[in-house]
Design a protein around this nucleic acid. Structure first.
Length: 419
RNA sequence: GUGGGUGUGGCCUAGCGGUUAGGGCGUCAGGUUGUGGCCCUGAAGAUCGGGGGUUCGAAUCCCCUCACCCACCCCA
């Protein structure tokens, strides 16, 4: 019988990565609080309609990446592929429209996409996201971008590049796509094979082509920014001004196209420099029509999501370590029966004093026990054999530096370590 | 979903038709009487991802399958 493996595209996060993950999560939550965003936790499963209605029938997420199943009661449920639609569902369900607007929310949790796995792309992925719902103001867009930017700065990802764009509203986007099609149509024979296919299946993706032979055609293509109406253009200008005001560097990239249908106006993404492949570390945008699609009152919103695995990957490649790695203060070395009992009592007292204590395994030789204690990285070994136990003392042995070991009363080990 | 690459004890890896499948790291034990880090010795641990086939003989060749990686697609 073959032994079990984790499901494809899903990973165990091992203890060695726990501190890094905790650091990312703590930083994200702390930064979110600095902007007065409050946490919302929604179920991992939603009615499939929440995503089917909002993400876009044409999108890959709906077409082929969603885990959908029927429960025993016959309801069609989906493992959530993204956070925004679920948060909006909660906004409507809990009447947040009558809260002070905008409602600022953040979340942290697992999401699921039935993709073909690749480095940085998983079937279960963790995201941190923030949403500001109820404000049409460009100030909200800029606030989210600033929040996200602050997060990366706090984590030490100083070199990530911010690219922003405006994709206007549905009508102007439609006009743009028509114009783009007309522009490329005569050029199709000269395009790469991939781009010829994209011309038919996903026109906007032609703009993303990395093929050298497409470059001239792509560079001459019309820009969506020239198709924005006055209001959308003014909105985008205000977002950029706000970013300028707080000194956040960005690059306007008219070729950014967010994957989800519900986006309008501002869209953005953060990427490591020189990155290829599954490299986008986090992305966001405005989704003014989304709440209405879910049956709520017309309500504007804007938000972003960032991938925890991709952040972790980038921190690792830059050699950034969590500030507080897991440390052991003390390892006990119990020798003999009386020593073992005394060790248990001392360990309990040390833990009560807030020290991390690894209980040494009784029955090992002292040499073996001390080898293990040393390898653990602990600062001290507390040795209690029957000899010490009889006298009510412990041998406190510093494992780092060159201080001498000393004998202290079992009741005073914590004080001795603190001193 | 499409195309390509990889897969040897927990980790890294040698071997690429006939080896008791070798090494390093790690783990455990020991180097005399209760004291670690270096060093030394020993042990456990691999049906060579899984299944099938070719062959007198396969980790080594072929097929299928699974997983990971890369590109596409798409995206966090």
């Amino acid at each position: 019988m073959p032994s079990y493996q984790a499901p494809r595209g899903m990973n165990d996060t091992l203890p060695e990565d726990a501190a890094l993950w905790r650091h990312i999560r703590d930083t994200a939550e702390r930064v979110a609080r600095l902007f007065d965003y409050r946490q919302i936790t929604t179920p991992i499963v939603e009615d499939a309609g929440v995503f089917l209605r909002t993400v876009g029938d044409e999108s890959d997420i709906v077409q082929k990446e969603m885990y959908v199943f029927e429960d025993r009661g016959g309801d069609r449920l989906a493992l959530r592929p993204e956070g925004t639609a679920a948060v909006c569902r909660a906004y409507i369900e809990h009447g947040m429209g009558s809260w002070p607007q905008p409602v600022r929310l953040f979340y942290f949790g697992p999401f699921f996409r039935y993709d073909r796995p690749q480095a940085g792309r998983y079937r279960q992925l963790w995201q941190f996201g923030a949403e500001s719902i109820g404000s049409e103001s460009p100030a909200a867009d800029a606030e989210l971008i600033e929040l996200q930017h602050t997060l990366y700065q706090e984590l030490g990802l100083h070199d990530v590049v911010l690219r922003v764009n405006s994709i206007g509203n549905l009508e102007s986007r439609g006009r743009y796509i028509d114009a783009l099609r007309e522009y490329f149509r005569p050029l199709v024979p000269g395009l790469s094979r991939d781009s010829q296919r994209r011309f038919e299946t996903n026109l906007l993706r032609v703009l993303d082509s990395k093929e050298e032979q497409d470059r001239a055609a792509v560079e001459g293509a019309p820009s969506i920014l020239d198709f924005l109406d006055d209001e959308d253009a003014a909105h985008f200008e205000s977002v950029k001004s706000a970013l300028d005001a707080v000194g956040i560097a960005y690059e306007v990239d008219p070729y950014i196209v967010r994957g989800l249908d519900y986006y309008s106006r501002t869209v953005w993404e953060f990427e490591p420099p020189e990155a290829r492949g599954q490299s986008t570390i986090g992305a966001g945008g405005r989704y003014d029509g989304l709440i209405e699609l879910l049956g709520g009152q017309p309500t504007p919103g804007v938000g972003f999501a960032t991938g925890i695995e991709r952040i972790a990957l980038n921190l690792k490649t830059r050699g950034i370590e969590p500030p507080e790695p897991e440390v052991i203060d003390v390892v006990t070395v119990p020798l003999g029966e009386a020593g073992a009992a005394a060790c248990l009592r001392v360990a309990r007292d040390l833990r009560a004093a807030g020290l991390t204590v690894r209980a040494g395994t009784p029955g090992r030789s002292m040499k073996a026990a001390l080898r293990a204690a040393d390898a653990s990285g602990a600062a001290y070994a507390v040795i209690i054999g029957d000899r010490e136990a009889a006298d009510g003392v412990a041998t406190l042995k510093p494992l780092r530096g060159d201080a001498e070991q000393r004998t202290v009363a079992v009741t005073e080990v914590a004080e001795a370590i603190r001193a």
